[in-house]
Design a protein around this nucleic acid. Structure first.
Lengths: 138, 138
DNA sequence: CTTGATTTGTACGTATGTATT
DNA sequence: AAATACATACGTACAAATCAA
């Protein structure tokens, strides 16, 4: 239940509820969350508050949102495997808006940045890429 | 200038302006952005629209926000170096709210997830960690 | 140290436009 | 064509943290 008098903001409480439903499988990948209107009536909240809650999940990479469609639970992306080389250095960061568009990334997906020995840098979508350190078998 | 009649939403236009000021060094790391009130008057926008713009930059990891303080441009974190091993696999994702708190991560910082050969998983803050593939010198 | 001003955070409501069903 | 649903943008109000005198 939503507690309007507690310390935790209402929109985070709703985000917690919806996140639990996703983690538990009650709303599995590919399925949609209820509409803004339904959630706002169900929990007696303003629509803006509901939207903030869903936005939290979007920024966590759990759901995608498209205009006119209800928020959809993200499926696990098929991962490209990229082999790393000795001396490579990996870090993570969020893309800016232009990068996200040019790489076709959904909101909530980070970038893996690989700095190669030569000095140049490769970027990969964080949730759709596995960077692998070669072992004897490779 | 903000174009109220263009296709690009106003809050993204303002985010673009502020992002440029950060990238260009006009507002360097450690310095603060102008207040909501200043920006809303300067650009003739509602405060909510300004806050959405700054939120964009927060989710990109460019600024941190704390109640009562203006948004601050993030400094480059000192990076811990972690050595990878043969067979390790690296991917990236966003933390959920609980993870972010327990790891002490700012909003907009992704997690680097390292799956080790043995099967267990280590997580590191994406912007404060360099994962290094050992080379001959190491 | 205390007070008052500034500033952010949350939550509500309303309205309009646009995409999907 | 109509109903549903999301996206944007405005406004108001109050609480809480910070800052400055």
């Amino acid at each position: 239940m939503i507690d309007h008098y507690g310390d935790r903001p209402v929109y985070k409480q709703l985000a917690d509820i919806l996140r639990d439903q996703i983690y538990s499988g009650a709303v599995p990948p590919g399925k949609q969350l209820p509409s803004d209107l339904y959630l706002s009536q169900m929990h007696r909240l303003g629509r803006g508050t509901v939207r903030r809650a869903v936005e939290v999940l979007q920024n966590e990479g759990l759901v995608t949102r498209d205009k006119g469609q209800r928020a959809t639970v993200r499926e696990q992306s098929p991962r490209d495997v990229v082999l790393l080389e000795p001396g490579d250095e990996v870090s993570g960061r969020m893309p800016n808006d232009a990068e996200r568009r040019s790489l076709g990334l959904p909101v909530g997906e980070p970038i893996l940045e690989v700095r190669r020995r030569g000095g140049y840098v490769d970027v990969f979508p964080g949730a759709a890429t596995t960077l692998r350190v070669p072992s004897a078998e490779d």
